[in-house]
Design a protein around this nucleic acid. Structure first.
Length: 818
DNA sequence: ACCGGTGCTCTCTAT
DNA sequence: GAGCACCGGT
């Protein structure tokens, strides 16, 4: 058995390129420990065995992990035996950079210091993608090969939709979304299709079981895996193959996991399998997290992983970090008061030695546009009064839909902003098109991608032709691509000669890119970015989108052509990083002596695969970059792990935060509370929380009730501004709210937009304004509660005792009273 | 086969 | 307010 104790300890620090006694004062070890608190130091120097670090917000969690890694290396643990796992690529990148800085290994020229070679800092998903890529053949799943594609949510839905339809089922009754949700939950619990079917009793579960099995069958036919498979199949391969497990757990002697409170069952098992030791000693697993920041229960995260760590790893040491170095006393006090309302929780004292700070600005606004104005002017005032840079401010919201109004406000006022939606670029139509071509090149079995591109741009292969070929392929049990090859020869019944010719041309183009099946064979020269350029031009996508732009003359269409070339630019950058040996350094399958296994010069196909994989695993939070000098807009979920001097949390209303979907479960309500806790504790110095009295939701302007969480914040730390005219939920502290602090005269007040809320009963479009009174010949007098705009504009009207009616304005005989 | 218009439905969070 | 299915014209 190979364990690190059996290995000759390598490499003096000098050999590793690490200077053990740097010039600037003290030994390297002293320097690693110098500015740490007692508890932090304890966690950093802790020796062997399982370690749980319960780290409150801002308690120096990342610092502890990075110092601990550096300390391990100084203790003589070879860097390639250390594996650190995070949740986002950005967190992984930062951790790598910080370890590099601590160990002082200079990068090329002026580049940032690089971490020692062989040290793995990765996300769960990319670690699994690599392990799986390497060992997938050991699973012996027909159809699944190392060239597999990773299907994202959109791909999954497209596939599931077809499955449901082909089964003669109704996609309304059985929405792909819900079915996939059930399957995802099962996979997170490590329940595969076969065992799901075994335990399926009722009609509903039996149906899901059936769809699950068909879905798996089609995924394998397409040589594809979904996100959940990355984890579940890694568990499978690691637990079924000793060879696979040893390549990972035999290699690593130390495993560190960040944000452990957000791990699900699959991730828990993967961690155990990696940490497992074969010499009877306790595993060196160090997990860091905060149960109060567990916000991914809905995607299977199991808070008991962290709460019961000591049970899973007997004899584990626990260290609690409660001191915040981030937030002011008032912010910490507010967060603490809030989170104490959770009943299912392990309490830990939060405290800080930072100054008292400013009160939390609580502002109740009239509607979402007003709210956006208030937020905008608050941010501007911080810039003027406190000299904060745009990049030091962030606005958080519960749902992505809330960003629109904020964006409008930022644009109108010329405030630079970025939206932390890293995946947004790859979700654009034209970008998905290019990627679909690339995916088909890398994996011709990829059904979903092939369907997307076979007739885009249109080349005379319509839905009838595809349906014929699909039927043939299903009958013969071959892939759609193979079916297309048949059809192109003009021998498939029901496929016209015309369509066959079109297919022939399509396949010829594909063949030119792939070197006619030799697959990026030696005669296909060129780089990845050159390949992508060829694809954009030769596929006809460029011309297609150019024509579109010319036709519509809209900015959005102009951008599409540019976006195509953005993919090329992205690939160029990827090439450079890839060439820098990043892939080898990250490959966890380097042999246990730390010599990177001989890896041949990366052929184009391998690079393409790696590129597509990296694109698939981009996270929203990865897009956050404070140095851009712009206000960051993002969801509360994406905010996890970040900090900003100034933070605004908008949309604090019942149904939004806490979200309506959490209404009937205490544990879900408590997760909403933790979500707000995460938001509040991102703030270092300035914090604002807002609500709007009416909000447009699903195109309907509706009255809201302010969030119950307002009542759970400590009044003494708040500065309340009720700009919504004494609006309250009618509960708890209504009087207190109404007397809220006077409006600051410097604060621009809400200026009613005549087009939006005229003083009268109708707005410029002739639609009634919310709150205006109406008279109906039959129902009597009522108040407009909501308005639906559009072709057949409707209004929800409360007629008191008669109840709330929705009327189509075109037909309703209404008198508007103002 | 393709394209545009219309009307219906359903809206959370993410790797 | 967006995505999608359906339909009718070219």
């Amino acid at each position: 058995m190979m364990t690190h104790d059996d290995n000759p300890l390598p490499a003096s620090l000098e050999e590793l390129g690490i200077d053990p006694e740097p010039a600037h004062g003290g030994s390297a070890e002293d320097r690693l420990l110098a500015d740490l608190t007692e508890a932090q130091r304890e966690a950093v120097v802790f020796g062997d065995g399982p370690l749980l670090v319960l780290a409150g917000p801002g308690s120096g969690k990342t610092r502890v992990i990075t110092r601990r890694i550096a300390h391990l290396v100084h203790r003589g643990v070879p860097p390639w035996r250390i594996c650190a796992v995070t949740f986002t690529n950005k967190a992984a990148g930062e951790m790598r950079a910080r370890v590099g800085a601590l160990l002082g290994i200079a990068g090329p020229d002026d580049a940032a210091p690089e971490p020692p070679r062989g040290l793995i800092v990765s996300t769960f998903h990319s670690l699994c993608a690599r392990v799986l890529r390497r060992h997938v053949d050991l699973l012996d799943i027909p159809g699944l090969t190392p060239t597999y594609a990773i299907y994202d949510t959109t791909d999954q839905r497209a596939l599931m939709k077809r499955i449901i339809k082909n089964n003669g089922m109704d996609t309304g009754n059985w929405s792909p979304r819900n079915v996939l949700g059930a399957i995802s939950a099962a996979k997170n619990e490590l329940t595969d299709a076969a065992s799901y079917a075994q335990h399926a009793g009722e009609f509903y579960t039996r149906t899901i079981a059936k769809l699950y099995q068909l879905y798996e069958r089609d995924l394998r036919r397409a040589n594809a895996v979904d996100f959940d498979d990355l984890l579940m199949l890694t568990v499978k391969v690691l637990s079924s193959s000793e060879e696979a497990r040893m390549s990972v757990s035999g290699r690593f002697s130390h495993l560190l996991i960040d944000e452990y409170q957000d791990t699900n069952r699959a991730q828990f098992v993967i961690a155990s399998l990696i940490a497992q030791r074969d010499d009877g000693r306790r595993p060196n697993i160090c997990v860091v997290g905060d149960p109060d920041q567990s916000i991914y229960g809905w995607r299977g995260a199991d808070i008991s992983n962290i709460l019961e760590f000591e049970k899973h790893y007997p004899g584990a040491t626990t260290i609690a970090l409660g001191q915040s170095f981030r937030s002011t006393k008032r912010i910490i006090g507010t967060a603490d008061t809030l989170i104490r309302h959770n009943t299912q929780r392990r309490h830990k004292d939060l405290f800080t030695e930072r100054p008292e700070g400013e009160p939390i600005a609580v502002t109740h606004c009239i509607d979402e546009r007003h709210e956006a104005q208030i937020v905008g002017s608050w941010l501007r005032s911080l810039r003027e009064k406190h000299d904060l840079a745009w990049g030091e401010m962030a606005v958080f919201y519960r749902t992505n839909a809330l960003s629109r109004t904020l964006e409008d406000e930022m644009r109108v006022t010329g405030t630079p902003y970025v939206i932390a939606r890293g995946t947004a670029f790859y979700e654009r139509e034209e970008v998905k098109d290019v990627l679909a071509y690339l995916r088909v090149i890398a994996n011709p079995a990829d059904d979903v991608s092939l369907r997307r591109i076979v007739n885009k741009p249109t080349r005379g292969v319509g839905s009838t032709t595809i349906a014929r070929v699909d039927l043939l392929a299903t009958q013969r049990g071959i892939s759609l691509m193979e079916g297309l090859v048949e059809a192109s020869r003009g021998v498939v019944e029901g496929v016209s000669q015309r369509a066959a010719n079109a297919l022939e041309r399509f396949l010829t183009i594909l063949g030119a890119w792939t070197g006619e099946g030799s697959f990026m064979g030696s005669d296909v020269s060129g780089s990845l970015s050159e390949l992508i350029e060829r694809v954009i031009v030769e596929s006809g996508l460029e011309t297609h989108y150019q024509k579109l732009a010319a036709k519509h003359a809209e900015a959005a269409d102009e951008d599409k052509v540019e976006n195509l070339y953005e993919v090329v630019a992205g690939a160029k950058q990827f090439e450079q990083e890839y060439d820098a040996g990043a892939d080898i350094a990250q490959d966890p399958t380097v042999d246990p002596d730390g010599n990177a296994a001989e890896i041949p010069a990366p052929p184009l196909l391998a690079m393409l695969r790696a590129f597509l994989e990296s694109v698939s695993l981009v996270a929203d939070a990865d897009a956050v970059d404070p140095t851009q000098g712009a206000v960051t807009l993002m969801t509360l979920h994406a905010a996890k792990g970040l900090e900003f001097p100034a933070v605004v949390i908008v949309g604090m209303e019942e149904g939004l935060l806490p979200h309506s979907r959490s209404r009937d479960s205490i544990s879900e309500l408590e997760e909403e509370r933790r979500l707000l806790f995460v938001g509040v504790t991102r703030a270092m110095d300035h914090l604002m929380c807002t609500s709007a009295r009416t909000r447009t939701h699903h195109g309907v302007s509706e009255r809201t009730i302010r969030s119950q969480f307002f009542d759970e914040l400590p009044e003494e730390h708040l500065e309340i501004n009720d700009l919504a005219g004494g609006w309250g939920s009618g509960s708890q502290r209504a009087r207190g709210w109404d007397e809220g602090a006077a409006i600051d005269d410097n604060e621009p007040r809400y200026v009613p937009d005549p087009e939006y809320t005229s003083a009268g009963a109708l707005d410029a479009e002739g639609l009634p304004t919310v709150g205006s009174r109406v008279r109906h010949p039959q129902f009597g007098d009522g108040v407009v509660v909501a308005v639906v705009r559009g072709m057949d504009a409707r209004a929800k009207i409360d007629f008191g005792r008669v109840g709330v009616k929705t009327l189509i304005l075109r037909y309703a005989r209404l008198e508007f009273l103002g």
